[in-house]
């Protein structure tokens, strides 16, 4: 039960942060990606602000064996930069630049994003759903 409560609290805090920082506004996100228009640096402040508590949390995590609720902490990250990581990130970036939504804000804005938000979210979910089977067919990419 505690796990569910803290998961919901984390999700709620994440949603509040996305909203306050303006990251649910696609204009602001596209403005950050638009180096040749009126460049909007807000996203850099968001990323910078977010990384401070996370860096502290990783420093604490390194000195512990398990998380506060007893489950194992994430394993040491995988080091290899694979074709799948590069191709996937490029594809993600293209979609991000087209619509100005990434997965977090797409979910956070569902209550006020209207039809546009819903269409994006459904297409994103469909994309996630077909990636598994697609990956199995494109074996070289999945390495």
């Amino acid at each position: 039960m505690a796990r569910l409560v803290f998961a919901a609290l984390s999700g709620g805090l994440f949603g509040f942060g996305l909203l306050l920082s303006g990251m649910t506004d696609t204009r602001r996100v596209i403005g950050w990606l638009d180096l040749f228009g009126g460049w909007d640096p807000t996203l850099a402040f968001v990323m910078g602000g977010a990384m401070i508590p996370v860096a502290m949390a990783w420093a604490v995590a390194r000195r512990r064996r398990v998380a506060f609720l007893g489950s194992p902490l994430p394993a040491r990250p995988e080091q290899r930069i694979t074709p799948s990581l590069a191709a996937g990130s490029a594809l993600f970036g293209i979609g991000w630049g087209l619509a100005g939504f990434c997965p977090g804000p797409a979910m956070a804005s569902i209550s006020f994003g209207g039809v546009a938000g819903l269409v994006f979210l459904l297409a994103m979910v469909a994309g996630m759903f077909i990636t598994g089977p697609m990956r199995a067919r494109l074996a070289p990419l999945s390495s």
Partner: peptide, 14 residues
């Protein structure tokens, strides 16, 4: 739709 598919597939691959 195009953007959503790209974000969905891309983030899963990556």
């Amino acid at each position: 739709i195009l953007a959503g598919l790209a974000v969905g597939i891309g983030t899963r691959l990556a």
